[in-house]
Nucleic acid binder design. Structure first.
Lengths: 240, 240
DNA sequence: GGTTATTTGTGCGTATGTATG
DNA sequence: CCATACATACGCACAAATAAC
């Protein structure tokens, strides 16, 4: 034959439909084309389309109603990236309930490269916060935030008391902060990452590193974030 | 034992080192820690580290010199995203040779959603350009650019003659254009995408959709881009 | 320029888990 | 159930190239 289609047809179709939902070709609440129409579009049997739709339904992306059709119930979370990136605001603005779960708060001296990015001397104490971000109860990202502990007295305690980073910063005397830079690439999920994000090992993640600074341009946070690739869309407004 | 490490140790180590290079923890030209040091850091035998390094060497990321050490020879391409995104300038600014290969130029009427984003009526003619972008000869991204043909007379011919989109626009009377919005997520590579990008099927891609408009804010291009996740890092300057 | 310590490259032996027949 | 083959992983020893003194 032509080649060998390693991926089953129904998976390819599910992926295609998933992409259409992520691209807002089908908005939340929209009715998908009928199974017969989809079967014709993809050139497959209706059973194959049904298999794909069943997969999307178990993922919670669509809901089927007998006699009515298939309806989009959820779409990837929009996550705006700009000068002011606030997790809670970002998620809440999309009409979803933001939530954070902290795994561990670690304190250790900075390595040379960590010190460079945060503009502190090597060996200066760091406070590192590992956890997961959720929207509407489903995990969307893993994060590990690096804070310069000596510049932010009491940051570790503030992070455990308050859920938001913004509030924790305020307790440490940082009234405002802005995003200096963001770097984005894609990585496969490790076994442990997949576990926490409820994904398969090797599933594509959006890996982002970011630097936040206070009003004087002094770095206050260096963050690494692993977004579940099919559950989040980072958006960048041209104006930023 | 604890769990079952499905992925081989040497692959996990290779991935970790690959990430460190992408994060610029080890810059191009830097010497990696010795095999003995890495073996101690990862808690494995030196042979296992060697296996990982061999994998990185075949990828062209590092080069080994007996008696001297292991040196970083390449790192992911930096691709700045901002108000003015120009492929050739982006790649050239990083000291790499930009190149483009066009697979097909297609002309067909716009669907309803395509018309919405490009602000043309449904059924209005579109010019769609499929191809691959390369840096230093290695493919880094697949793209399909959608142009409103009626707004840009002669765009199809201009795209075949000139390599750059910027020059093609100029031929059609668009002297300048800026990035209106960018949307980013991660997707696994399909079989055909993997083929063109020289990746494994399912490898993580950064999937980006973008909208460019002319000086009057009139959309002139809607683009979809699939970046090879481990070969590109999108960077967003806070100031843009 | 020669000596020495460091570092990669190579070889062999052992053990384990997994897939195949 | 057993034999075989293969990939993974560890341990030890030594050769060869490099760099530093």
């Amino acid at each position: 034959m032509t080649g060998r289609p390693k991926t089953p047809l129904w998976q390819a179709i599910a992926r295609s439909l998933r992409g259409d939902i992520a691209d807002r070709i089908y908005e939340v609440g929209d009715k998908l084309p009928t199974e017969a129409q989809l079967a014709e579009r993809f050139g497959v049997n209706r059973h194959t389309v049904r298999h794909a739709i069943r997969a999307l339904a178990t993922e919670g992306l669509v809901r089927t109603r007998r006699g009515a059709g298939v309806f989009v119930t959820a779409a990837p979370t929009e996550y705006p990236i700009g000068k002011r990136v606030r997790f809670h605001q970002n998620i809440a603005a999309g009409g979803q309930a933001p939530q954070k779960r902290i795994f561990q708060i670690e304190e250790r001296p900075a390595t040379a490269s960590e010190g460079d990015t945060l503009m502190v001397s090597r060996g200066s104490q760091l406070c590192i916060c590992h956890g997961v971000s959720l929207a509407n109860g489903t995990p969307i990202a893993l994060f590990s935030s690096h804070f310069p502990a000596e510049r932010l007295p009491g940051i570790a305690a503030a992070l455990t008391e308050r859920t938001g980073v913004t509030e924790a910063f305020r307790l440490c005397g940082v009234s405002d902060y802005t995003r200096v830079s963001t770097r984005i690439s894609a990585r496969p999920a490790t076994a442990t990452q997949a576990l926490h994000l409820h994904l398969e090992e090797g599933a594509p993640l959006v890996y982002s590193t970011s630097l936040n600074a206070d009003g004087q341009g002094c770095p206050v946070e260096f963050g690494k974030t692993w977004f579940a690739g099919d559950r989040v869309t980072l958006t960048i407004d041209g104006a930023v």
